[in-house]
């Protein structure tokens, strides 16, 4: 998948999962704040990436994923 395809797919999945209407997130925006993530729904984010992109995010990689760009990069570099 190209980066643009990843961004489009991630945004629509996040908008649906976290029930957010406007899904064009600013790339450098902080995910925890924009999606008001805590330890419980952070797991939804991990599950969503794992099941839709076949990319596993080990717990100790989580701290690397602060902004949406970090997530897009992570998927892009780890996709099968």
């Amino acid at each position: 998948m190209t980066r643009e395809e990843i961004i489009a797919k991630v945004n629509s999945l996040l908008a649906e999962e976290f029930e957010i209407e406007d899904s064009n997130f600013a790339g450098d925006a902080n995910m925890k704040d924009s999606l008001n993530l805590d330890s419980i729904n952070l797991v939804d984010l991990i599950a969503l990436v794992q099941f839709n992109f076949k990319v596993t995010i080990p717990v100790d990689d989580l701290h690397k994923l602060q902004t949406f760009n970090d997530l897009y990069d992570y998927i892009e570099s780890h996709q099968a």
Partner: peptide, 10 residues
């Protein structure tokens, strides 16, 4: 078990 992340188990 569907997923385990940190202290949360799904």
């Amino acid at each position: 078990i569907v997923l385990q992340a940190g202290n949360v188990t799904v």
